[in-house]
């Protein structure tokens, strides 16, 4: 989508912004870039983000807006999943193994992470599990860590959000609530240990 050929549109009436976004998302076959939406609406990005969060609040709707790394996607509401599945004849649900769920959970809560970090935390080899998750499009490579070997950094995908019925990563239940106060800092400390001695590279692509 290139909006460059079109003259910048006049800013939409702020009260109409949620409805406009609804219209744009409706016709978008793929996740739409929030920046594109802001350009089209002639409003700042923050206004789009705010309007989208408003859109997601209405429980009477059969759809939700899923947000993932600067994109938004209109999807069916997770509570209707069983109906939608039957309607689309998606009768085969793919169940993940325990190892795959552990790895996926680790990536979901601590992204972005490298394979080495996943393996250090799980204490086992994870290459095959990562390949499976990747093949199922549940995770994706967000970039490379500017350290020795430039390892891939994995993050969860929009497919992950959809499969688990989450509107965004903020929807992930807090671990503290469930696990009785396992410190979330622990993880960051361990990651910091793992990254010990990583040289400070500039952010740009190593072009290799």
């Amino acid at each position: 989508m290139t909006q460059a050929e079109f003259p910048a549109s006049a800013g939409v009436d702020p009260g109409d912004l949620p409805a406009l976004l609804e219209a744009l998302l409706l016709v978008s076959p793929e996740p739409a870039q929030l920046r594109d939406l802001a350009d089209i609406a002639g409003v700042p990005l923050s206004a789009v983000e705010e309007a989208l969060s408003q859109l997601g609040q209405d429980p009477s709707r059969g759809w939700v807006v899923i947000q993932h790394r600067g994109t938004a996607h209109l999807s069916s509401a997770p509570r209707f999943a069983s109906y939608v599945r039957r309607f689309l004849r998606l009768d085969r649900e793919v169940r993940l193994s325990g190892a795959a769920l552990e790895t996926l959970a680790l990536i979901a809560y601590r992204q972005p992470v490298t394979r080495a970090e996943v393996e250090a935390l799980r204490g086992v080899d994870c290459s095959r599990v990562l390949a499976t998750l990747h093949a199922r499009e549940l995770i994706e490579v967000a970039g490379r860590l500017p350290t020795v070997g430039n390892p891939n950094q994995y993050v969860t995908s929009i497919e992950f959000l959809k499969q688990f019925g989450l509107r965004s990563l903020a929807d992930l239940p807090s671990l503290d609530e469930v696990s009785g106060g396992v410190s979330e800092h622990v993880f960051e400390e361990i990651l910091a240990d793992l990254r010990f001695g990583a040289p400070e590279f500039p952010e740009n692509d190593p072009s290799t």
Binding site: P78, R85, F164, L175
Partner: peptide, 19 residues
């Protein structure tokens, strides 16, 4: 903590959540 998180995901998977 990871195991707890995995259990959370598993329960969502079990519930058949999906968009």
């Amino acid at each position: 903590a990871v195991k707890v998180a995995a259990a959370l995901l598993a329960s969502r998977q079990q519930a058949g959540a999906g968009a």
